[in-house]
Each structure stands twice: as C-alpha cells, then as structure tokens.
Simulated scan of single mutants.
Amino acid sequence: MKAESAAPESIVREMGAGVVSQRTAAGFTHSSVDKIGLKKETVLTIENGIIATTLYRLV
C-alpha cells in the first residue's frame, strides 16, 4: 500500500490551529519564536495551514 505524500488540507489547518494554541499557551509571540530555533515566517505558514510540518519539528 502506497503512503500519501501530502496531508489533507483539513488536517494541515487543524495542525496549524494547534500550533497557535500551544505557542500562545507557552507565552511565545511570533517575534519570540527565534529563541527556540524557528523563523517567524515558518511558524506563520504552519499556523495558517499553508504547509504541513513533521512530528519531529512539533516536538
């Protein structure tokens, strides 16, 4: 059975909403995510459901 190469859009959007929730709960702003090794632009694209991310990156 061949694995899907892209996540369905609804899952990517839900993942983005979860990232927003966890980021704000942790007290991070978009401007402060560089302190944890992420670029603001990357976080924004994940949160807006434009790109999917890996479980590794989320952890």
Rank of each mutant, 00 (worst) to 15 (best):
M1N: 04
K2M: 13
K2T: 11
K2C: 11
A3M: 15
A3C: 11
E4D: 13
E4M: 12
E4H: 07
S5G: 06
S5Y: 15
S5I: 14
A6G: 02
A6L: 14
A6H: 09
A7S: 12
A7F: 12
E9C: 04
S10D: 15
S10N: 13
I11L: 10
R13L: 06
M15H: 02
M15Q: 13
G16N: 06
G16S: 05
G16E: 03
A17V: 10
A17K: 08
G18V: 04
V20G: 01
V20M: 11
V20D: 00
V20N: 02
V20A: 03
V20Q: 03
V20I: 13
V20L: 07
Q22E: 12
Q22V: 05
R23L: 03
T24K: 14
T24E: 13
A25F: 08
A25W: 08
A26L: 10
A26I: 02
F28C: 00
F28N: 00
F28A: 00
T29E: 03
T29G: 02
H30R: 04
H30I: 06
S31V: 03
S31N: 11
S31T: 08
S32M: 07
S32L: 06
V33L: 00
D34V: 12
D34P: 10
D34M: 09
K35A: 10
I36P: 06
I36C: 01
G37T: 04
G37R: 05
L38M: 15
L38T: 04
L38C: 07
L38Y: 04
K39C: 04
K39R: 13
K39H: 08
K39N: 10
K40W: 08
K40I: 13
E41Y: 08
T42W: 15
T42G: 05
V43Q: 06
V43M: 12
T45N: 14
I46W: 10
E47W: 03
N48Q: 03
N48A: 08
N48C: 02
N48R: 11
N48Y: 03
G49L: 05
G49N: 04
T53W: 01
T53I: 05
T53G: 01
T54N: 02
T54K: 05
L55A: 15
L55M: 11
Y56Q: 14
Y56C: 07
R57F: 02
L58F: 15
V59C: 09
V59A: 14
